[in-house]
Design a binder for these strands. Structure first.
Lengths: 343, 343
DNA sequence: CATAGTACTGGGAACGCTCACGCAAGAAAC
DNA sequence: GTTTCTTGCGTGAGCGTTCCCAGTACTATG
């Protein structure tokens, strides 16, 4: 009849039980747990002791039901982009992200999918408050997803400059353009004059910017033969592009490839064509991946600070979580030319 | 005074609103959402229409508060294990896992950490019901974490055979032993008689089993010189181990390395020592990574079905989620020898 | 000595859902 | 025509928090 009795026996202790143990009320325990100041030191200690004794941990579901926060952020990676995983890009990014999030109480929710289904699911998760925000990595140029999310008012951080920047969405990227320019200038400075570039896909900022860097390095330089061949970051496309270049100019003496895989492919083709690297043709790649360390000769390559990029992504997102009104500037991080044997 | 009025204006529609729209009660809508049969077709349609019209999506927090399920599984990767990320291992694993989970309504929560802090956090998350289960990848041999979790009654799936199997915890692994044996036999069949192996760390099953496979391939074979040198899967350790082998037997004519990175390192050392691969020394690696495709010559390597391993991990976990009492057998998946230039 | 703060604390209500009951109405059995 | 199932549906209670409003007991002020 009365609601006496009914001792809870199930699993984890609740706020109420901690309160009973400490001889205070639910509200007070809640204040302690959430670090409110309005608690006297004596009760503070009493409550903390009770918490330790009972091993209390707040129930996430209950909390999130009332606060309408989930303390979870979504990491979306396009599954179709297998090349996203080219070492050490993804690993470093995730690690940086994870480390930064570990400093907060945020959880990382990983989603790999592709196409329309993915978009729908992401929009749902974000729109229905199942996550507090999202980090999107490596989308193709003008993917509408980030814009949609931003317009829906969700905190978002992008990896890689988006192409259509009608809506400003915060992003972090490596300084692809400067990285490419430095590499190309290095080729020029070492005396090369017939310098080719094997480009990445031109519907992604990374592809575009790296080509841009190549161009600007050679701008207004006289006596330089420029050769541009399209690729898509993949190894096969690098081989194909290299063949094209050789056909157009068999005297080419330097190649800047927009990715290490393309550079590795190019080196295969060059070797097959009887060219020595770096004596006949100098080669530089981009990404400083494991592959770069294991070609013969080892590949000179432009390194991105991937781990820091991950950390900055986290910061961008956290900043928005803390103050949704704040508008954030893009973060562009410097690259570094790692010299090895190929150039 | 009365609780009339108070029209909810906030965000997402609730069960109650759907119910009102469809002219039924909360309970009925819940039944529809959860696929109970006890609903007449007419009301079923009415409710579904209302759901579509309002764009209703269940509130995860509220649901999980009462069901005590979170529909989330944790993926734990030891951050210290940088080598976990050796292409394409992690990527493939995660992809397989993700695809399998996508068929259910399970979310993937990613956690990278290391050491004691990690263990504590994992135990908390699992113990306090913040996740329904956990997938652990690549722990060192006798990590106590999986056992602890299993003993706490949590669904767990391991990638890689655990060393101390006092408590049986379900795992998936590649058939490392057979893979290594096949590779070694291949070397023997092609006429090599001074066959070295560069081992992985001997506190991980993968390291142990691959050495085992090497041994069993050569067991009872006469006229074969065996050479074993320790490594840790890393490239530097491969170089070191190869040097050791050369010192002990400068006539070595074949090497089976327990990882591609070690094989790549070995090839560098062999080349520096003036040996030709494969003419003087045949080399086989393990993992079939990007690196394998880009050494010179390209590396013959033992491939693991990483994506399928990820999928099996998911299945193992899902099976336990569905029936916690069920005890599951390990899943051992076959490897494949991928022939390239080095052997 | 009354009055107004101030510093803490208690408890009701609400968050959105599921679950166990119970009731109504038609079908089947006698 | 009563009884008994069966099927479909509504309702209250409760999951574990947070938030807010109202105290209560002091302390400072006039």
């Amino acid at each position: 009849m009365t609601s006496l009795g009914r001792v809870r026996t199930t699993g984890r202790p609740t706020l109420e039980q901690v309160a009973a143990e400490a001889g205070v009320s639910r509200g007070t325990v809640s204040r302690v747990v959430n670090g409110s100041l309005e608690v006297s030191t004596t009760t503070l200690h009493a409550v903390q002791d009770a918490i330790d004794k009972l091993g209390y941990v707040p129930n996430h579901a209950a909390r999130s039901l009332v606060t309408r926060r989930t303390d979870t952020v979504l990491l979306v990676v396009s599954e179709s982009e297998a090349r996203v995983f080219d070492e050490p890009f993804f690993a470093g990014l995730v690690r940086g992200l994870g480390q930064e999030l570990a400093k907060t109480n945020l959880q990382l929710n990983l989603m790999m999918a592709s196409g329309a289904r993915q978009r729908d699911r992401v929009e749902q998760l974000v729109g229905n408050g199942h996550v507090d925000g999202a980090v999107l990595i490596s989308l193709h140029g003008d993917d509408p997803l980030p814009r949609k999310l931003v317009e829906a008012g969700a905190p978002v951080a992008l990896n890689g400059r988006p192409l259509s920047s009608e809506v400003s969405v915060p992003f972090v990227d490596a300084d692809n353009s400067t990285g490419a320019r430095t590499a190309t200038e290095y080729l020029y400075q070492s005396g090369r004059r017939r310098i080719a570039t094997l480009t990445g896909p031109q519907d992604m900022a990374a592809g575009i910017d790296r080509l841009d860097g190549y161009r600007s390095a050679l701008k207004a330089r006289r006596g330089v033969t420029r050769l541009v061949a399209q690729g898509d970051f993949g190894q096969a496309s690098g081989e194909q592009a290299m063949r094209e270049v050789l056909e157009r100019d068999s005297d080419v003496d330097a190649v800047f490839a927009a990715s290490d895989l393309m550079a590795a492919g190019a080196m295969r083709v060059l070797r097959a064509a009887g060219r020595r690297v770096p004596e006949d043709v100098a080669v530089i790649g981009f990404d400083d991946s494991d592959v770069a360390r294991n070609t013969e000769p080892a590949l000179t390559s432009v390194a991105q600070p991937v781990q820091r990029m991950g950390a900055e992504l986290a910061r961008l997102l956290i900043a928005q979580l803390e103050d949704p009104t704040r508008s954030l500037d893009p973060v562009i991080l410097p690259t570094e030319l790692v010299r090895r044997g190929s150039a």
